[in-house]
Nucleic acid binder design. Structure first.
Length: 484
RNA sequence: GGGCCGUUAGCUCAGCUGGUAGAGCAGCAGACUCUUAAUCUGCGGGUCGGAGGUUCGAUCCCUCCACGGCUCACCA
């Protein structure tokens, strides 16, 4: 008899498993194994999914999987009664069942539950993937994550860790006086970052809206309003390419602290991530894809100019004009790294391109790259004494950017100039240039204290702490095309 | 968007220079009171991702399409 027939028979007999409402689950598998000495011969009531069924005639063994793992169930006619034992034998791998019984150890030493009563709580009409090789096809794993979770314990472990990492970050900030807020996801202006937004529409307002690409400009309004320390951790949406490091929707935390600067943000960044690593991995040192990454503070600090000097052998410290910089780009042959035509590039564009071409890939251990060109940092305060550079850093791990932070620009007049410059970039064809947010500029006119701010790609942190190769392995339901 | 690779039974995979498909597990029927990838006996299971083309004949060769993976480009 196949599964649907078995279900129909049960329903015809008035024993529809789908009509079951609750089950008194007194213990989980891991608990029984952990507290075995205390629980031996005691009654327990467990529930879960049948992962294998080894029928040896007058007795049988079931591997029952719950949230925490698996526990073996031993059943025979003596324990259940002839009728119930025969009934249980009609159940299938994949079914959800409840088991009441007592804890014992089999002759082979396996900690098990000896069944005294068993109930079918839900019927599985679709068979599970193969028990030994499991589910490997990445397409099925991502599309039907529930199967991936059932079949691959590592997946459940990763997503439990994800939750703990996020909780560790919140704990770190909450205990330091940060207020968590929720800023809008729908907005008429998608600003605060350089990225193409998703576009949607409000029927009620008859208005084109964007999904947020950053929370920055709203969080700074909260600083203007007097919150002093504030953060938003949630989804951002960027209409860009998809690869092992990018999912169109991803989790980012942005935080802002009044009366602080980017150096304070550096300390916060390294301490917070080390804290999360210790909480979840038990150490600030983790292995990522076979390489040890040491998050122990303090992380290495290096200016962008020094990084380019060290890894590219190019010294920009004496370069004064855009013309000189263009000549260097040509001579060193990294013009192809530039996003704009060479003649439109400033010294800042060229320094940044040199950094990306020569230095970025070398930054394996956590490193802060400090002092970014003003041209590519429109929301950032300039360095005292050098208006071409800003008080900004990005943190790199394993050649990937994990955070971006700065001493926030709080001069409304300069801010408006920077937005105006961005508008020109947009006219030159850069559809990722920052959009002007006039209300944000107005908020700065009300007065924003000197402030340090930082954004961290939460999924990427989770990747490092769970040794995940792809961002899809830390996002439960990654963005996929429909397949029909 | 470009390049490379993949798509065969529910799952994991074979399938040689072109002759209309196999294994293991899962499933079904049976045996077995300590198994744990249980074992043993027997049985069924496929529009070979889709559409065209070449050919006497296509899972195999060619073209296009779909989806996925990797990679490059793009990307705070």
């Amino acid at each position: 008899m196949v599964r649907r027939e078995k279900l129909a028979r049960l329903q015809a007999e008035g024993r529809d498993p789908f009509s079951r409402l609750t089950w008194n689950q007194t213990h989980h598998s891991a608990e029984i194994k952990r507290d075995f000495e205390a629980l031996e011969n005691k009654g327990v009531s467990i529930a879960g999914r049948v992962m294998s069924f080894r029928d040896i005639g007058k007795a049988a063994f079931i591997d029952l999987q719950d949230r925490d793992g698996r526990i073996q169930v031993y059943l025979n006619a003596e324990g259940l009664g002839e009728e119930a034992y025969a009934e249980v034998k009609t159940w299938d791998v994949g079914d959800i069942i409840g088991v009441e019984g007592y804890v014992f150890r089999t002759r082979r030493g396996e900690m098990s539950v000896h069944a005294k009563g068993m109930t079918l709580l839900a019927k599985a009409l679709e068979p599970l993937p193969e028990k030994f090789h499991g589910l490997k096809d990445p397409e099925i794993r991502y599309r039907r994550r529930y199967l991936d979770m059932v079949m691959n314990p590592q997946v459940m472990d990763t997503f439990k860790k994800r939750t703990r990492i996020i909780r560790a970050i919140r704990e770190y900030l909450d205990t330091r006086g940060y207020i968590e807020v929720e800023t809008p996801i729908l907005s008429t202006i998608a600003s605060g970052a350089a990225a193409r937004p998703f576009v949607t529409k409000s029927n009620a307002l008859n208005l084109q809206l964007y999904l947020r690409i950053a929370t920055e400009l709203y969080l700074k309004r909260c600083i203007v309003g007097g919150m002093e320390r504030v953060y938003d951790m949630g989804k951002n949406f960027r209409n860009e390419g998809i690869d092992i490091r990018h999912n169109p929707e991803f989790t980012m935390i942005e935080l802002y602290q009044a009366y602080a600067d980017y150096k304070d943000m550096m300390e916060l960044c390294e301490n917070m991530i080390a804290f999360a690593a210790e909480q979840v991995c038990g150490s600030a040192k983790v292995i990522y894809q076979g390489t040890e990454i040491d998050f122990t503070p303090p992380w290495r600090r290096l200016t962008m100019t020094d990084a380019v000097k060290q890894y590219g052998g190019i010294d920009f410290s004496g370069v004064k004009t855009d013309e000189e910089a263009r000549a260097i780009a040509k001579a060193k042959g990294f013009e192809h790294e530039l996003k704009k035509k060479l003649k439109d590039c400033t010294k800042g564009d060229i320094l940044n391109a040199a950094f990306e071409a020569f230095a970025e890939k070398e930054l394996i251990q956590p490193t802060f790259i400090m002092d970014y060109p003003t041209d590519i940092s429109p929301l950032t305060k300039q360095k005292p004494g050098d208006p071409t550079m800003t008080e900004r850093f990005e943190a790199f791990v394993y050649a990937r950017e994990i955070s971006n932070a700065y001493s926030e620009l709080n001069d409304p007049i300069v801010q408006l100039d920077r937005f105006t410059q961005q508008a020109k970039e947009r006219e030159l064809g850069d559809d990722e240039a920052y959009m002007l947010d006039e209300d944000f500029v107005s908020s700065l006119e009300v007065g924003m204290p000197p402030t340090g701010g930082m954004g961290i790609g939460v999924d990427r942190i989770i990747m490092f702490l769970t040794d995940a190769y792809s961002i899809r392995d830390v996002i439960l339901f990654p963005t996929m095309k429909p397949n029909n």
